[in-house]
Amino acid sequence: MKVEKILLSHGGGGEETLALIKNFFLKYFDNPILGNLEDSAIILNSFSKLAFTIDGFTVKPIFFKGGNIGKIAVTGTINDLVVMGAKPLYLTVGFIIEEGFKIGDLEVILQTMKEEAIKNGVTIVAGDTKIVPKGEVDGIFITTAGIGEILYEGISCKNLVSEDLIILSGSIGEHGACILAEREGIGVEIDLESDCNSLFSLVEPLFESRLEIHAMRDPTRGGLSATLHEWAYASSVVILVEEEKIPVKPQVRAFCEAFGFEPYHLACEGRVVIALPEKEASKALALIRKHPLGREAQIIGKVIKKSSFPQVLLKTLYGTHRILENTSGELFPRIC
């Protein structure tokens, strides 16, 4: 009998669970490590420093323009490793699925995860599935943990110093605008795709170049503003960015105007912000711009000074200065 929907029995740990694993998860993720179906994956010690992270994904809607929850679950964790200077190697995946979830939808998600993993040379080596009764979770939640090998040591949000320049790899806010546009109460057609993407191939040449890099972040929840604030606080510095230099697609700008958001607060899922010494900036910018994801990269500002009053300032289009407000409070749950 063809199974069309996830049933509670798929989580029972018996025949149906095994069938779900073999017929679906292994169908997409099979590899010699995962295929053993042991309680944990045995992986090779790479004898180098490792980066290790975990992230949960609850994005609503599950399918959005430019991706789905599976894509973001793989790229999100990969990106967390990448911005610490690591080459992602292994992922583990946990699914929490609501009873009645369509198998067809699950397969689309698995296919996307497989493609993203292959594209980035990572292997999904262990997994877990829990099925919960209807109403106890909204469709599907995914958690991924990842291990990566450090290629470039010493990147940290505490490293910013005076005169560092800030590079942004592309236009901001597309993921956030895409997700919000489909939200209840907003619901507008938006001619825009999420920027959801893995960043490894974009920044790998930077790691190889051995240019001096101080800090690197993917501005996800809280957007560019939250990333810059984290840096300012962690490094006790004042950062100044220029509105004119920050790329924002017209669709995102229009969306923000119409609904009272600022693009600086909207999440990106495929952009990176880098802080590095002025002397390295033009070389780094050239390397980033060579990659399709980095064509619109810009130097958007600089660290103006060390300060016990860390701040992020924005130079407006009129040459005036204002505080770039940190993201706080009410901003929308479940964008990733």
Partner: peptide, 22 residues
């Protein structure tokens, strides 16, 4: 979203730095 885009042009005009400076 086409309509939002054309609104964007109008909004931009209301913020135009050249006109502001003038």
């Amino acid at each position: 979203m086409k309509s939002l885009n054309s609104l964007n042009l109008i909004w931009n005009n209301f913020k135009d730095p050249q006109r502001v400076k003038f």
